[in-house]
Design a binder for these strands. Structure first.
Lengths: 150, 150
DNA sequence: GGTTGTAATGAGACTCATTCTCATTCTATC
DNA sequence: GATAGAATGAGAATGAGTCTCATTACAACC
């Protein structure tokens, strides 16, 4: 995992990752990265549009998919119909998601070290006999967030 | 979890669940249930269309969503853009998914009892401090299936 | 075994998140 | 600052999934 003391260090690393796939780090992409990096939770396209209205929808989608190709951003399928975007795990603590099935909100939760050791062991156990080669895992908890427990 | 000695017992239980939400168990719905119940893995709409071509797309979607409302069928978001459908957990052993990021295939894996006890404990741990009320969880392992490890 | 009210179905139109196109604008490099 | 290639914006196109509505099946009653 990467940690950054300043926003500039973050941008430098993003730029490196983009350069690796022959992409420039332009103002629009910067704006998207800055928004995602400063957000507590994964954002949908309309979240992004609301907070950075000067970026058109089609560009936002393209930026997100370029950043995803570069390994800067990750896309997650929530329980509603909208995709959410967040910084890739290299930029964040490894974490899991709580999906609210009432409002669609996605909440990040960071597991303890011990927790993750257990998950890793369990993933091995699950994949071993299938000859499946795991690259990552996602533990999603579905339920109702505080606001949605009437 | 329910277990069924005969297909008829399965159909009876499905019928009960549909009746609870004032729905009939018609031939089209039966065909969808029979297909899903006999499938090793979650199916996409095009899988379903390929195997039961006499059911039109719009009806298949409606059957699936009615069956989902009744608690007979579950919908899962795979790593590609297509939703997959499988029998709800009441009809299957509780299980998790291996998602192949090359071909999109979804493989079911059944965890051991001990495994699930651990997951349950971990889910509690994750949700406790958020005031989140968990109703279910999904542990997805992303990677490459045997066929896709060039 | 006909009638009648209601639910389910099929065909196709529609929606809307996402992707594509292409003309224009930016940017790196000389 | 000229040039070539890359990035962008606006809007068109795509396509999974949903909705509509006319038709068909079904259950309950006579």
């Amino acid at each position: 995992m990467q940690t950054f003391d300043t926003v500039e260090e973050l941008h430098e690393f993003v730029e490196l990752l983009l350069h690796r796939i022959d992409q420039r780090y332009t103002a629009g992409r910067r704006a998207v990265v800055e928004l995602l990096a400063s957000s507590e939770r994964p954002l949908s396209i309309s979240d992004i549009e609301a907070r950075v209205p000067e970026i058109p929808r089609s560009s936002a989608y393209r930026h997100l998919s370029d950043l995803q190709r570069a390994g800067v951003v990750g896309r997650i399928a929530a329980s509603d119909e909208f995709a959410r975007f967040e910084m890739a795990e290299d930029f964040l603590h490894h974490h899991h998601h709580l999906l609210c099935s009432s409002c669609g909100q996605v909440i990040d939760v960071t597991p303890t070290r011990a927790f993750e050791r257990t998950v890793a062991r369990m993933v091995d156990e699950l994949t071993a006999e299938q000859g499946f080669r795991a690259t990552s895992h996602a533990l999603d908890v579905i339920g109702h967030c505080t606001n949605c427990q009437h």
